[in-house]
């Protein structure tokens, strides 16, 4: 009845709060603080943190870097796309465009690489399956992540940002070898 009537007390902000609400607010606040602290703590103790390293770029500039890597380290072809095995620890590149991830990468297990990602046209979603790591790929930005594949096998990169009619055909590969 009184949620749609003016408060019973003119000075409602001076009415003492019940014990039950105070206890709940205290518990909830503590939980909120724990959740807040988990994020910086994970930066210190966790292993999955997104780097904030990024550069503005253009499709032409980024594409040239990709081609440079492809021309140096191509070891084969899959479905017409080069398979590239870059040196351990190096800067490696993958670009998204309508509708493919280019090139295919062949990496060594438990080795760190600097992965550069960008888009040649629209926005794309880098979604590494089945590990389920998901990143937003934005044209004009070169996003750099240090990755350490810790399981060997065949990984697929699907696109999970809508990018037009051929969106569902955009599948790439990353191989991780022992």
């Amino acid at each position: 009845m009184t949620s749609f009537m003016p408060p019973a007390d003119r000075i409602w902000w001076k009415v003492p709060v019940g014990k039950q609400e105070l206890v709940w607010i205290a518990i909830a606040l503590v939980w909120c603080i724990i959740m807040f602290l988990m994020m910086p703590l994970w930066h210190v103790y966790g292993k999955q943190n997104l780097s904030t390293e990024a550069y503005q770029t253009t499709p032409a500039k980024f594409g040239a870097k990709v081609e440079e890597m492809v021309s140096k380290y191509t070891v084969g072809k899959e479905a017409g796309i080069p398979i590239v095995a870059p040196p351990v620890g190096s800067d490696i590149y993958m670009l998204g465009r309508l509708w493919q991830w280019y090139p295919v990468l062949k990496l060594k297990k438990n080795q760190e690489y600097r992965l550069h990602l960008s888009s040649m046209d629209w926005q794309h979603g880098f979604s590494l399956q089945p590990d389920n790591i998901n990143l937003q790929i934005v044209p004009g930005y070169d996003m750099v992540l240090k990755i350490t594949p810790d399981k060997s096998g065949e990984y697929s990169v699907i696109c999970n940002e809508y990018c037009g009619i051929g969106h569902h055909t955009m599948v790439g590969k990353i191989y991780v070898e022992d």
Partner: peptide, 22 residues
């Protein structure tokens, strides 16, 4: 949680040059 994409027409990725199966 299994990685199924949103805003996506085909879970089978029909027509993709490289295959992937959920």
């Amino acid at each position: 949680t299994l990685g199924v994409a949103r805003r996506h027409w085909d879970m089978d990725f029909a027509g993709a040059a490289m295959a992937f199966e959920y």
